[in-house]
């Protein structure tokens, strides 16, 4: 799975738990909580969906790392043991 594939899966699960975001264009680096008003219930549902889909059990302490779609994909890739270059810094 590439970074982009993980990110696409994360976006799909995000829309599943927050269908009211389906019409939004979500920039990959946008802060999901600040910009899209994602609350703790959205977050916990998203984490559960990612667990089901990718098998990654994200501990609560790591929730802050799921700041944006890109950050989430990078975090998940790390947990999945996928080495990758997420692009130039």
């Amino acid at each position: 799975m590439t970074h982009n594939e993980i990110r696409a899966a994360a976006l799909e699960e995000l829309i599943n738990v927050a269908p009211d975001l389906a019409e939004e264009t979500i920039p990959v680096d946008a802060d999901l909580r600040e910009t899209f008003d994602m609350d703790s219930m959205d977050l916990v549902n998203w984490v559960a969906a990612l667990h089901r889909r990718l098998g990654v059990d994200i501990p609560e302490l790591d929730y802050p790392k799921l700041r944006s779609l890109d950050a989430t994909a990078a975090y998940l890739a790390g947990r999945l043991g996928i080495s990758q270059t997420p692009g130039p810094p």
Partner: peptide, 17 residues
Amino acid sequence: VAGHNAVRPPERRILLG
């Protein structure tokens, strides 16, 4: 809540609320 959630998979965690 933190202790409760630490030993549970995400779908069984609860919120402080």
